[in-house]
Write a protein that binds this DNA or RNA. Structure first.
Lengths: 254, 254
DNA sequence: CGGCGGCTTGAGGTTGGTCAAGGCATGTGG
DNA sequence: CCACATGCCTTGACCAACCTCAAGCCGCCG
């Protein structure tokens, strides 16, 4: 049995965060070494664990290797709004760590594998590897685009359209990180959770899902959701995958 | 009369974009020189000019020196959702320029002064001035936080709370760039426009504004909005200015 | 002076939230 | 191995909130 380097059971390129970077810029050996150092502290979180709770200070980031989480806020009227579903390759604690206290909470939807990254070492990475910093600017811009689509969902789309858009967004994002097949994926949220994403009540999500099923657009078995008629769903939800799967190619890599 | 350098009528530090950077990192002479070069191409846009229209390609950015604009999307049902109000110091064309075609439209609300920045020169800046690139990652994260609050607004807050939150956000953002006094500011949007931000109809915005007035929380004269009872408004809208005025101070500058 | 955009107000109708009850699956402890 | 509890899905009835449509008004600008 050969002695294995830490984390060497799988090649680093398989890590969803590295894979994401790899898709938008060319990583050289120095980049890889810096990333290897960055990802040295691995931790795990069990289902329903609160990773970030609003109001506290978090001077560190967590990069997701596997598992899902939600970023959300609880309002004084008892309602909850989920701002984002966090998937492998995403960074948790961004922007919480910049502020004196977190403005959103994050909790794990299932068991997770994470990397602990101190803000200092993250900043060091940005300063010493400008191409990675530039890629991170790109990622942040894409994150903003996802958020913007979410604003449109909750603000102006009809309930049925919202669901259609949300389901397609989940499918596409999960496919990018290899957590979904061609037409189906495992929904990590309950129907009430979906409601907290798209701004509807649990029962209404149920009715709308039923309508999508009866129209033959999707099929549901347990938490497995299958997109039966993707074209029709895309039209219904006005979904353009461009903002998700397009890798920024202009400008650089040079 | 001394010979003046281009743009030297006002010191560069007064430029809202530079001022924003200056507040979060220490800019040295090389930084300033790079920024001076970046901001060399000035252009203007008249009221109602479309700066970006959805579906077209935009391989350039525009940095706002003065004036306001909205980033929005038109849906097939005829509704419009405004995703963001763009103020001086903001960057337009982000993330439009990364993709093959823009996913949102941007139009000027009034006359504007802008700087044209090609994507290449922007990328060059990021690669050659890593501290600026790092600050831009921070800005992008703060932008994401603003968007996230907007999701909460449209998704789960009551109409009255939405308005309260939106008005306070506008006041705070405008104060940061010196476009608002202690308690009041000029609203650049019509009531229907406000509705397109917060996801309400024009008439309902009118009714809710009336309610805020009758409760003695705000006062309106023309487009001038005055926050009469800031504390009560903050409670009503659950507004925490932290995500806007806090400058990231952790990590670096070192 | 005339037109237009935006504010204001009202009436009516639909949508979607709330509340409540029942069913089903899963997991747990005796 | 069964009894029970729990969480989630499902469905229905009711009701309020908010949208739509519409009309009148004001102020501004040409």
């Amino acid at each position: 049995m050969a002695v294995q380097r830490k984390m060497a059971t799988k090649p680093m390129e398989d890590h969803p965060f590295i894979a994401k970077l790899n898709r938008s810029i060319k990583l050289d050996d120095a980049d890889m070494a810096a990333l290897d150092a960055l990802l040295s502290r691995r931790i795990t979180a069990k289902k329903a664990k609160d990773l970030i709770v609003e109001g506290y200070e978090y001077p560190a980031l967590h990069i997701v290797e596997s598992g899902f989480a939600i970023r959300y806020k609880l309002l004084h009227n008892g309602k909850r709004q989920i701002v984002n579903v966090i998937v492998p390759g995403d960074i948790i604690g961004f922007p919480a760590c910049f502020y004196e206290y977190a403005v959103f909470s994050v909790t794990a939807l299932g068991d997770m594998n994470l990397h602990h990254v101190s803000l200092d070492s993250f900043t060091d990475l940005c300063l010493s590897r400008p191409n990675i910093a530039t890629a991170l600017v790109w990622f942040a811009a894409r994150e903003a685009a996802i958020y913007a689509e979410h604003i449109i969902d909750t603000g102006r789309r009809e309930p049925l359209e919202r669901l259609a858009h949300f389901l397609l967004e989940m499918l596409t994002r999960l496919q990018v990180v290899g957590c979904a097949s061609e037409r189906s994926f495992e929904m990590p949220l309950s129907q009430e959770g979906i409601g907290d994403v798209v701004g509807l009540s649990g029962p209404h999500v149920n009715r709308m899902l039923g309508e999508l099923k009866s129209k033959g657009l999707i099929a549901v078995s347990g938490h497995e959701i299958t997109i039966v008629d993707r074209a029709a769903l895309q039209i219904l939800g006005e979904f353009r995958p461009a903002y998700l799967d397009r890798v920024p190619v202009h400008g650089r890599p040079r």
